[in-house]
Amino acid sequence: MSSVTTTPVPRPATVARPTGRTAPVLRQLLLLALAVVVVAPFAWMVTTSLKDYADVYRPPYLWPQEFHVGNYGRAWDAAPFAGYYVNSLIMTGGILVGHVMLDTLAAYAFARLRFPLRNTLFLVLVATMLVPQFVTVLPAYDLVIRLGWYDSYAALIVPRMADVFGIVVLRAFMASIPAELDDAARLDGAGPWRSLWSVTLPLCRPALATVGMFSFLYAWNDFLWPLLVTSDDTHRTIQLGLSTFSSKYGTYPELLMAGTVTAAVPALVIFLFLQRAFIRGVASTGLK
């Protein structure tokens, strides 16, 4: 600390304002061009979903001549999209609640309680994150069959109720909360459950929000596992429904794109609302 003696110079007020400057023209043009390329498939998806069948392959590609909102109704009539939606909501809700509850409990145990093999168990859990999904699906599928869960919500939800990513995020966050708060509650006679519920949990809201966001996206967009453990429209989710729909109605791009928009929209809307928190979550955890 040799520089302590110099008097701190007040920062010029202009430097700290990120919105006050415009980037050089070249940079703006490059970014704009790249953004157009990235967004083009979305634009094509939305405009095609509003076109008349005859206009799909006719220029102007990115703008409908007339708006056929009725394509959405026709797509939803052509396949049981409403049922797929309900199934997706049930599965996503179940997984979300499971993650928030089980991850919180496990994270609290790892962050605050002392028990034998604590660090070993944590390492084993973290190591499972490196295992690709296709390494576990075969025996997991066999288990689901033997439990009689094929084509059920239990098969869609229970095997994915706990997730290590959430435990790691929550544990790190809990570790950053001073343990004294917890100790004080324990001295006042609160057990671990009570002190988790009334002291730690209210402070963990930002981390819980991060875990919830990631869990929602994971569950809503998930495909392989529901594909393996369901065969029947009564339990199939929207992503599976879309996939089946695209093999049946591939020759009707306007209907298929209407279906695609409805499958993609919930995740996109959630992202647009929570965009800042979401990107901060990715930047700080470095993970999907």
Partner: peptide, 12 residues
């Protein structure tokens, strides 16, 4: 904008 594809389902 660059992040939008990340949150879009793979199937869509």
């Amino acid at each position: 904008v660059f992040f939008l594809p990340v949150v879009t389902s793979s199937i869509a």
